[in-house]
């Protein structure tokens, strides 16, 4: 115990960071730019998360939606859906906020060098994947094709419209999106995200598929990918659970023998394929 004591950490103390920019994305989602004390970089990997805290309102795990290749500040896209996130939506630039992390297993983009990248994002699932999308765009020559499939419930819920417009115009990105329910102005695809997968022409052996979305989406997307004959070992998922402590202790995020806050949220699909409670 005494030798371990040297490595003991104050695991639950946040650092007080500053919100340096707030952008309203949709009726229920905002993007916050966070700057750590002394403008130090967070040193995160795409796909990792932080525990955000506001005293009196608790903590919540939030995925980092910006790439580490872009500046020392980082972005969080937050849907107002709970005690902490509702309060966060009331905060303005200049407000202080507690940060612990980065935590968890992220993507290792170096492992994907030379591969075609297929991003499948459902709803707010675009936020965590955006950190990897931006990474691949910033190192564009390291990767093959970049295909982004994005589905939302309706056009009003589309996140990052500015970025999406850029992606649509860029010739080296194949961006397709769909909505479950169209409105009067909508002229694009209508239907669930899985309808976008069959028409794709892919070099399946060389394609890395990354999937993030609401719990109900995974099963159907995985079936479609199987239909496309994408090998399981080319598939990565990011799973959402209630990661309360972020450090593998509190037990809330455990799926079978794996702690999402430690071994995930990003999982290599073969690791979670057999876990009944995973997808």
């Amino acid at each position: 115990m005494e030798n371990l004591a040297q490595h003991a950490e104050d695991l639950y103390c946040p650092e007080i960071a500053t919100i340096t920019r707030v952008e309203t994305l949709t009726a229920s989602e905002k993007r916050f730019e966070i700057t750590m004390p002394g403008n130090r970089p967070l040193n995160h990997k795409p796909g990792q998360f932080v525990e955000v805290s506001i005293f009196g309102f608790g903590e919540a795990p939030i995925s980092i939606c910006s790439s580490p290749t872009r500046g020392p500040s980082f972005d969080l896209t937050v849907r107002a859906t709970g005690r902490l996130t509702d309060k966060m939506h009331l905060l303005e630039a200049g407000s202080q906020i507690g940060i612990r992390g980065p935590f968890g297993n992220g993507f290792d983009p170096q492992d994907f060098k030379g591969r075609d990248m297929l991003f499948i994002c459902g709803g707010i699932g675009l936020a965590p994947l955006k950190s990897l999308i931006d990474y691949t765009l910033d190192r564009r020559n390291d990767f093959g094709r970049i295909i982004i499939l994005y589905g939302t419930k309706n056009p009003a819920e589309i996140l990052f419209p500015e970025e999406i417009e850029k992606w649509q115009q860029q010739t080296d990105i194949e961006f397709v999106m769909t909505v479950d329910q169209a409105d009067e102005q909508w002229q694009g695809h209508v239907g669930v995200i899985t309808t976008l997968i069959p028409p794709l022409e892919l070099d399946v052996k060389n394609t890395i598929a990354t999937v993030v979305g609401p719990p109900v989406m995974y099963k159907f997307v995985l079936m479609s990918l199987k239909g496309k004959r994408i090998p399981d070992e080319n598939i990565y998922l990011s799973l959402e659970r209630r990661m309360k402590c972020g450090v593998g202790k509190c037990g809330h995020c455990q799926i079978n023998d794996t702690y999402v806050c430690q071994d995930g949220p990003v999982y290599h699909y073969p690791h979670v394929k057999q876990l009944e409670e995973a997808v």
Binding site: E2, L4, A5, H7
Partner: peptide
Amino acid sequence: LDYSFTQGHVESNYVSRRK
């Protein structure tokens, strides 16, 4: 419990009480 609180991250609260 020693195992659970010292594998991965070593939790100071537990260790301080246990030491």
